[in-house]
């Protein structure tokens, strides 16, 4: 199925939400490893344009502007990827949205937005890719979860609920497809520098840093390296797990 880094045989990887932040870092990691990478986001960014123009990634980078919560658009994205590369070795479900605010003042529209993308769209996309992996004899799925799904965080109750649900999805799906050489794991990410855009203000971030044993916020590369470990071809005995990567914050 998959080749180790530096190998001549590239793996085909789908990373959702790869245009900025954590997703951008994950895409860069797999491109650097020599893999074929397909990603999607609601809008094109400078990072995407750079990858598209770079001859080093010619023929092994695919981007589509897609709102994954739109099922037809999501299905079309998957068809594009399969039309290009036939099968998928690795799926990283990274796309997600956070809306902050205490629940008593939260709107139903924001609830729908968060659940539609973080959960329903992830399940819809995963279903299609699992079918491809079943037909082609295996694969790796990594769901990007969050420690807010484990510990909770004031003002992120809906977001945290979707991440906790994602971990449940990981466990159930891992049991379903474990016998078919497909592993499914979650990475519960701690707070990253890119979280600035997720509704945490500077005061909250400084408090998080003080409470983190590693003494810093995470970088996308911290998460990308953990993903690389979970999708390694040799790591076929780790499945249905939630790997916390948070600088020790929840230790």
């Amino acid at each position: 199925m998959s080749a180790p880094e530096g190998s001549a045989a590239p793996r085909t990887v789908i990373i959702t939400g790869g245009s900025r932040g954590l997703g951008e870092g994950i895409v860069q990691h797999f491109l650097d490893a020599g893999d074929r990478v397909a990603t999607c986001a609601r809008s094109e960014t400078d990072a995407v344009r750079t990858w598209q123009k770079d001859p080093a990634y010619d023929g092994r980078f695919l981007f589509r502007e897609v709102d994954l919560a739109d099922r037809e658009a999501c299905t079309a994205f998957v068809k594009d990827v399969l039309g290009e590369w036939k099968s998928v070795d690795i799926l990283v479900n990274n796309a997600g949205v956070a809306r902050d605010g205490i629940l008593a003042l939260f709107s139903d529209e924001d609830t729908d937005t968060v659940i539609d993308l973080n959960l329903k769209a992830t399940i819809h996309l995963s279903r299609q890719i699992v079918r491809n992996m079943l037909a082609h004899g295996g694969g790796r799925i990594v769901n990007i979860s969050s420690i807010t799904g484990l510990t909770g965080y004031r003002g992120l109750s809906v977001y945290g609920a979707t991440k906790a649900a994602l971990d449940g999805f990981t466990r159930g799906l891992a049991r379903e497809v474990g016998s078919r050489k497909i592993t499914v794991n979650s990475i519960a990410s701690g707070y990253l520098k890119t979280e600035m855009s997720h509704g945490l203000d500077d005061g909250q971030l400084q408090q998080i840093i003080r409470r983190t044993p590693a003494g810093r916020l995470g970088d996308p590369e911290d998460i990308a390296r953990a993903i690389a470990f979970l999708v390694d071809e040799k790591n076929d005995w780790i499945t249905g797990q939630v790997l916390v990567v948070d600088g020790g914050l929840t230790a």
Binding site: R131, L134, A135, V177, R180
Partner: peptide, 14 residues
């Protein structure tokens, strides 16, 4: 059920 899902996926794929 899983083998049926595999059959469904392989038929669609091919």
């Amino acid at each position: 059920s899983l083998q049926t899902a595999e059959l469904s996926a392989i038929l669609e794929d091919e």
